[in-house]
Design a binder for these strands. Structure first.
Length: 764
RNA sequence: GGCCGCUUAGCUCAGCUGGUAGAGCGUCCGGUUUACAUCCGGCAGGUCGGGGGUUCAAGUCCCUCAGCGGCCACCA
């Protein structure tokens, strides 16, 4: 009898974890089941959603417990259960963090050439890497660490290139001067899912545009008067009687020498404003679409730094180069001078787009970007979901993803950040490039680079090459912006001399979206693809899960996973979102230090249902720690009784004719619990399963049956029943609370062996 | 504006296919003779958001109102 009075997690967790790892249980050999060495072992595969490589553990990561429960449960059921981990380079996210770091040193990304910036970030990530997997180990996660994948591993780069090449050769890749949401502060365009909308009160300006050749006006309303320099038209509704006669006439654009047409388009809401809308195709998504319909010119008046670029026909030259907000005030001032402001609505409520990362205003603008056509990629996903080839838990998310697929637009996959997988496209610009085609468009490629004296230089490459050798440009290259008609070749390696590579990188989700295609080995597709379950946080359903399905079906013709389980946000004990500013951030490792990994894991599940938020409070963690201690002491009681009874082996004493009613009732309840636990896990109802085993162990076994055993005359029979119930309970609880159950198993199991590989109970 | 969800004990939340209201934490009272005070027993506390309907029976189904939340769209 060696068990301490109180279970002390700090004394056992490390040793138990190391024993698990040594046992090889985390890394079942693929060949084992293929050669049927271990009987009829079937594969069960979960791919770990890769955390950001430079991240450290936050409370949300605790939910990976769900993956671990599944893996441990399936392992016990005899599957070759493998949980494949990995880390994401998280391009834009990571560069953002790094740039904040730079800012503290008074530097910015613009101080470095692209390659140096990349190397510095790589170093930064390397220095901050590895911590999170150590923390995952603390939580008891039984992933196969030996085959961890990083999204910048050479193998991943090759796979991502292969997919891109396939898409490009099948016409799914295009470059477009399409309207993107651009964050001037972060220096990159973002996809529609990365943009936030923010309600705001702004001024709505009513501006008079004079009808050419008359003294009459058409008034348009706008919150962005400074973009008027890029107006290409004014639109009215085709049925609007007020304006019908004016369609086709021209308006004099104030503060310029230009005239713009009045066009009719159904996009106009006759109820709003004046019923006449200024159309600025370069800086508004709706206007861009209208511009396409009416073949209007695109006039960019805001550049990627968020500064005005005034066309030559515009009069107030001092506005040129101003930042957008200053330009707005100046423009209004100028308009007022000429009496073109009809009125200003001071309290206009509308929503603006802001960067999800830095929260600053986005600038819609037309910038050359790389796009993926999704029309042909979407239908297989929709079909597969409708055929239930992939099922969603909770079920409501099936509708959410289908809704998303229905409205998903072409995907801009290029980001103007250095930290990422550089788009494998090469532009021939030098004299030695073996490109017979006309290079005139390529000569217009705009580059920014640091020359040999580290001075920034920018301009069109054709002109710059008169002064600088290509090698100098390439070495100091910061950014390259190619016109959409530029010629390029797709190649993983530099295709020859005289080429400059695209400086844009792939959207992180372009690579992580191929997670199921970069984590499995070639010989595993036959057995482990589709993988079994993808369990991840709900907020990346659309941005990640849908993309994985798209790529999986496109490249392999089959869904990447059979089940998707989505967990909600972890919030504080009061149901409030955790945030640094509120000061309510819970550090999971502190809780693990204090109460043990089992307690934290169980606290994330117990009493939470499926679908809602997951409140995490220290009170609950403590309660779960107490539960671990409870079962520890139940086992301790059992051992004491067994010692007293002097029976060496109780296992063969369960005989039907000796059992009392209490024993039969206990065994019946046990069987019910086995069935219920198995069913609940099959249905992905983890919380209810946790509640079930808790309730059974504490209130049925400890409170009732153990109290009953104390008064039994025939201790042998009762103890044999208790032993069976305890052993079985430990197995049922193990996926949830692996450490304490394993520790107890070591103390009381006469046969030896580890609980992690014990058989999941079945009702005989 | 569209879709989805939520509103149950002081707090945070469970209650799956309708059949006499639950857990954890907290409060109060009482318990240390040999598994556990990280324990045990017990009390208190809810007209299950309001209203209407279906049913022998509704927290559980339907309608409606109110409040809250999430996602999405639009907003010149």
């Amino acid at each position: 009898m060696t068990m301490e009075k109180v279970f002390d997690h700090t004394k056992v967790e490390k040793a138990i974890y190391e024993a698990w790892e040594r046992s090889g249980a985390f890394a079942p050999q693929v060949l084992d089941f293929r050669r049927e060495k271990r009987g009829k072992q079937k594969p069960y595969t979960i791919l770990m959603p890769p955390p950001n490589a430079n991240a450290s553990l936050h409370a949300g990561h605790g939910m990976y417990t769900i993956d671990d429960i599944l893996i441990r449960w399936k392992r016990m059921q005899g599957y070759a259960a493998q949980w494949i981990p990995g880390r994401d380079h998280a391009g834009f996210e990571t560069q953002f963090v790094y740039e904040k770091h730079l800012a503290k040193e008074g530097k910015s990304r613009l101080d470095f050439d692209r390659q140096t910036l990349y190397n510095n970030i790589a170093k930064f990530v390397e220095d901050n890497s590895g911590l999170i997997f150590e923390q995952f180990r603390r939580l008891g996660f039984s992933a196969d660490w030996s085959r961890s994948v990083f999204t910048l591993d050479p193998y991943v780069l090759t796979q991502v290139f292969t997919t891109f090449k396939k898409m490009e050769s099948e016409g799914l890749v295009y470059r477009g001067d399409y309207l993107v949401q651009y964050c001037p502060h972060c220096g990159t365009s973002l996809a529609e899912l990365e943009i936030l909308h923010e309600e705001r009160e702004d001024k709505l300006y009513y501006i008079k545009y004079k009808i050419k050749g008359t003294d009459e006006y058409v008034t348009v309303a706008t919150v962005r008067p400074e973009t008027m320099f890029g107006d290409s038209a004014v639109a009215v509704h085709p049925t609007d009687k007020r304006y019908r006669k004016l369609v086709g006439k021209e308006l004099e654009l104030p503060l310029t020498t230009r005239a713009i047409p009045i066009i009719a388009d159904e996009m106009v809401d006759t109820e709003f404003g004046t019923g006449a809308v200024k159309i600025t195709p370069a800086h508004d998504a709706n206007d861009f679409a209208a511009g396409q319909r009416h073949n209007l010119p695109i006039i960019n008046v805001v550049n990627q730094l968020g500064r005005m670029v005034l066309p030559n026909d515009a009069a107030p030259r001092e506005i040129d180069g101003m930042k957008v907000k200053a330009a707005r005030e100046k423009t209004v001032e100028e308009l007022q001078k000429i009496g073109a402001i009809e009125k200003i609505d001071e309290h206009y409520n509308h929503s603006v787009t802001v960067c999800y990362k830095c929260k600053r205003d986005m600038e819609p603008m037309t910038v050359p970007n790389w796009y993926i056509k999704v029309e042909t990629l979407k239908p297989p996903v929709v079909t597969a979901i409708k055929k239930k080839q992939t099922k969603f838990y909770p079920a409501k998310f099936e509708k959410q993803i289908l809704d998303w697929m229905a409205i998903m637009h072409d995907w801009p996959i290029s980001r103007q950040v250095a930290w990422g997988i550089r788009i494998p496209a090469w532009y021939a610009v030098g004299k030695s490039a073996n490109q017979p085609a006309s290079l005139s468009a390529n000569q217009r490629i705009h580059v920014t680079f640091l020359d040999k004296n580290k001075k920034p230089v920018s301009g069109q490459v054709g002109e710059l090459l008169q002064t600088y050798p290509l090698e100098e440009i390439e070495k100091g290259l910061q950014t390259l912006t190619a016109p959409i008609d530029a010629k390029y070749v797709v190649s993983e390696m530099k295709p020859g001399e005289g080429y400059l590579q695209e400086t844009d990188t792939f959207d992180t989700w372009f690579s992580s979206g191929q997670w199921p295609l970069v984590t499995l080995h070639d010989d595993e597709y036959a057995t482990r693809y589709p993988t079994d379950t993808m369990a991840t946080m709900v907020d990346i359903l659309k941005i990640w899960v849908s993309r994985m399905m798209m790529f999986g079906l496109y490249v392999r013709g089959e869904v990447p996973f059979r089940n998707v389980y989505l967990w909600p946000a972890v919030v504080d004990g009061k149901g409030q979102k955790m945030s640094k500013s509120k000061g309510n951030v819970v550090n999971p490792i502190e809780l693990v230090d204090k109460y043990g990994a089992d307690a934290l894991r169980m606290a994330l599940l117990f009493g939470n249902g499926e679908g809602g938020k997951v409140p995490l409070s220290e009170d609950k963690v403590r309660a779960m720690r107490n539960f671990g201690n409870k079962i520890w002491n139940m086992s301790r009681f059992f051992l004491l009784m067994q010692e007293k009874s002097e029976i060496q082996d109780l296992r063969f004493m369960i005989q039907e004719n000796k059992l009392k009613n209490e024993d039969k009732e206990m065994l019946k309840q046990l069987n019910d619990v086995i069935k219920k636990m198995t069913t609940l896990l099959e249905k992905f109802r983890f919380s209810e399963a946790a509640d079930t085993i808790y309730e059974f162990v504490w209130h049925a076994v400890a409170d009732v049956y153990i109290e009953h055993v104390k008064s039994r005359e025939d201790k042998g029979v009762a103890l044999s029943v208790l032993q069976h119930v305890l052993f079985t309970s430990l197995k049922l609880l193990h996926p949830f609370m692996p450490f304490v159950t394993e520790a107890i198993w070591k103390e009381i199991n006469p046969e030896g062996g580890m609980l992690i590989v014990a058989e999941w109970p079945i009702v005989k």
